[in-house]
């Protein structure tokens, strides 16, 4: 009986470290497949090269980085204020029973598959941009790209996709602020708005910040939605209506027909993506831990 229990304990321990093993395997195989070509081409040339043309042997990913960065920043500009507003609304303003329904809606938003977002962007957002935004833009810049596949489209769809991450984590950290803080502020004569802006949000700062970092990681890593709506042109964008290609989209699109060398290069793109996201995740994890310590 004793040995039976011991064996079970071992199996359970093995299951618990499965995630750690997975992270290790992923890191190893991504690097093993992409690192040789990355070193051979030169990391500096790879990251700062301005021409991405794999069929001609040009592997500069700066246009892809610019593409990813532009739609990520765009999505944060739209998504962060909206997300924090929703979190405040949920934690402080809405009544309990309505808050539950609102939370469920946010969860639904998180549950919609990314390819559905992409499809929605393709059939609704892009025609809308062509119809309503383009004429205004053309007034100032007649040369602007007219397809609608653009930084703007990517940023809007990504903003919707990162909302659930920002809302749920920010709401948790606002709700975790000790009630005494709120009471003290109200007792000093501050009204509800002043309490929210001057006390609750500053106290929940690190949680909100890590929700933004996680949202950013999600935006950078998002693939299929972006692939359908950004136009996939590996050029550094000049305006928000320019088409762009992203790191993720390029991997997904070109993997299917890539030659062996080209495949290795796509793995090298994967390394860059992986490192950036790992750094963001680790920062977010560490700051979440810090909140746990403070509370």
């Amino acid at each position: 009986m004793k040995t039976y229990e011991k064996a079970i304990e071992k199996v359970i321990l093995l299951s618990a470290i499965m995630a750690t093993i997975s992270v290790g395997l992923i890191t190893f195989f991504i690097f093993r497949s992409g690192l040789p070509v990355l070193l051979e081409y030169g990391i500096i040339d790879f990251i700062f090269g301005t021409t991405w043309s794999p069929t001609n042997g040009d592997y500069g990913i700066l246009p892809l980085i610019a593409g990813t960065l532009s739609i990520t920043i765009g999505s944060l500009i739209i998504g962060v204020p909206t997300g924090i507003a929703c979190a405040v609304f949920l934690a402080e303003i809405l009544q309990k029973k309505w808050a539950k329904a609102f939370k469920f809606s946010i969860e639904l938003l998180a549950g919609i598959p990314s390819v559905v977002y992409g499809f929605f962007g393709l059939v609704v957002l892009i025609p809308a941009i062509r119809e309503y935004i383009l004429p205004i833009y053309q007034f100032f810049d007649p040369e602007v790209s007219q397809t609608g596949f653009s930084v703007l489209a990517g940023a809007v769809i990504l903003a919707i996709m990162i909302l659930p991450t920002i809302v749920s984590m920010s709401e948790n950290s606002i709700a975790a602020v000790p009630v005494e803080f709120k009471e003290a502020s109200l007792a000093l004569g501050a009204n509800k708005m002043e309490t929210i802006v001057r006390v609750l949000i500053p106290a929940a700062k690190s949680g909100i910040l890590s929700s933004i970092i996680l949202g950013m990681g999600r935006a950078i890593g998002e693939t299929m939605a972006v692939l359908l709506i950004t136009g996939n042109m590996a050029k550094i964008p000049g305006t928000i209506l320019d088409p762009v290609a992203t790191l993720t989209g390029t991997i997904a699109m070109e993997m299917g027909y890539a030659s062996p060398t080209h495949q290795q290069v796509l793995f090298a793109v994967g390394i860059v993506l992986f490192v950036v996201i790992m750094i963001l995740n680790i920062i977010a994890q560490l700051s979440v831990r810090k909140i746990g310590g403070n509370a």
Binding site: A19, T20, V23, T223, I251, F267, I277
Partner: peptide, 19 residues
């Protein structure tokens, strides 16, 4: 590492699964 695994984007899982 369990939390980190949750944050890895699906395209990286795809690359890994492929390799």
């Amino acid at each position: 590492f369990t939390e980190i695994l949750a944050g890895i984007p699906s395209i990286i899982f795809g690359l890994f699964g492929f390799a």
